[in-house]
Amino acid sequence: MKLNDFLKADLLGNKFLAVKGYAEVLDRETEQLAAYRLNVSIQDESSDFFMEMIQVKVNNLHPTVSVEELKNNRTMGVALKDLNVGQFNGNLWFSCTDVLPVTK
């Protein structure tokens, strides 16, 4: 068994809360906007990681929950489309393809 066998996004649950809006991620070579980072609080009580804060890279320059929406809402329930978890040099990383609003 390998470390990557434990890096499964479903272990985090499926209830997330976006906190404080997006931060820009610039391409190292061109200094152009390449993606966004979003602080996300895990809100699924069944998750072993309940109430942990993670930073997710959003690989989409036009996410469904827009930059403007999160500027106005300091926290917002979200769903993370295609959430991936990995590790590099002993650090965990999280990425997704889109941030979707959650309706109650």
Rank of each mutant, 00 (worst) to 15 (best):
N60G: 07
L17D: 01
F49G: 02
N14V: 06
N91T: 05
E52R: 11
T75V: 14
S47D: 01
A34C: 05
A23S: 15
L33S: 09
V102Y: 03
V65S: 03
L7Y: 02
S66N: 02
S66G: 12
E69T: 14
M1T: 13
N39D: 15
Q87W: 08
Y22V: 04
L11M: 12
E31H: 12
V58R: 00
E69N: 08
V25Y: 03
N91F: 12
N14H: 11
V40E: 00
G90I: 04
N4D: 14
G21K: 03
N4I: 11
T97E: 13
W93Q: 10
G13C: 05
M1P: 09
W93N: 14
V99Y: 02
V40S: 05
V67P: 01
S95V: 06
W93L: 07
D48K: 12
N72R: 13
K15N: 11
V19N: 08
V78N: 04
L33G: 09
L12D: 04
M53W: 04
N60R: 08
A23C: 09
M51T: 13
E69F: 01
V102N: 00
V25M: 07
T64Q: 09
L7N: 06
E69H: 08
T97I: 05
S47N: 03
F16L: 02
M51K: 14
E52S: 15
V85C: 06
F94R: 09
V78M: 02
V25G: 06
F16Q: 02
F6E: 07
F88C: 10
T75M: 07
E24D: 14
A35F: 05
N84Q: 15
Y22H: 06
V78A: 00
K81R: 14
L7W: 03
L3C: 02
Q43H: 10
